[in-house]
């Protein structure tokens, strides 16, 4: 046995980042997945912890749905996404009997599982652990931040879409970070603009610029705009490695740039 010490299963995890948003469906899981793929591309070992218990999306996005989690002496073994074992994932999706089973749980039960996810998963050596969260500022978030506090997370990446309704929810999430003492690494604006593949006209489906303005207003870094890109949505549906396969697509430079900024911050 290697020395696990006080940090237990997280002893050999380099940096922990949380992906948050007050709003649902803005691309938290997309950003978590693509960030993991981009960091892997840069030669890093990455773990993803999916604490969205009612709507886990990451297993589908990494094409590992239906895989099982095994138990060993020191805890749960996460699911490895590739042969090199460079990305590992833990999600409630692996614990469900049937994929469409609803997890109809109130707070206390969700909190108990999150605590277990944080203490009992045998991540081993990781450069980054990315924690993907559900929307809101409630049980899952409070429990995750409280349980991770001893491990001093690097901070949170906040994801928003450009329109006012989404920005409003993300402002509340910023307040959550402030109140819980979680550092904000920066804001990502997702779904900003769609370039028609036929005529190259760019339409701002959900308006534009809200994320950058919010970052300026809140005095936190703006990490970039990710455009709506059908190649990206398609890759996520099919669980393909977008970073590897579509370096020429419109969303690629934005995602690569976000990953680079996180790498720059850690070395």
């Amino acid at each position: 046995m290697e020395a696990v010490g006080e940090r237990g299963n997280l002893a050999r995890v380099g940096h922990i980042l949380l992906v948050l948003s007050g709003k649902g469906g803005v691309g938290k899981s997309t950003v978590s997945t693509e960030l993991a793929l981009a960091l892997r591309h840069a030669g890093k070992k990455v773990g993803i912890l999916d604490v969205d218990l009612c709507g886990p999306s990451i297993p589908q996005m990494l094409k590992v749905q239906g895989k099982g989690v095994h138990q060993c002496d020191s805890g749960w073994v996460p699911v490895f996404v590739d042969q090199d074992k460079s990305i590992s994932l833990m999600s409630i999706g692996f614990l469900l009997e049937k994929p469409d089973d609803a997890v109809v749980w109130r707070g206390p039960k969700k909190n108990a599982l999150i605590k277990q996810f944080i203490s009992d998963v045998t991540w081993g050596d990781l450069d980054f652990l990315i924690v993907d969260t559900p929307p809101g500022t409630s049980d899952e978030h409070i429990s995750t931040v409280e349980s991770l506090r001893p491990y001093k997370p690097l901070g949170a990446v906040l994801v928003t879409t450009p329109q006012a309704v989404s920005i409003g929810d993300v402002r509340r999430e910023l307040m959550f970070c402030k109140k819980t003492g979680l550092r904000v690494i920066g804001i990502v604006e997702n779904m900003s603009g769609f370039v028609c593949p036929h005529c190259l006209e760019c339409t701002n489906l959900f308006s534009k610029g809200g994320g950058e303005e919010l970052a300026r207003h809140a005095g936190v870094p703006f990490l970039g705009c990710v455009p709506l890109d059908p190649q990206l949505t398609q890759s996520l549906e099919e669980g393909r490695d977008f970073i590897q396969e579509f370096p020429k697509s419109s969303a690629f430079p934005a995602l690569a740039h976000i990953a680079q900024q996180i790498l720059d911050r850690t070395f």
Partner: peptide
Amino acid sequence: GFVCPKCKIESQIFPPT
């Protein structure tokens, strides 16, 4: 589905795979 306001061709931004 999304119909481009310029060329009127429909794209599936969130494809029903």
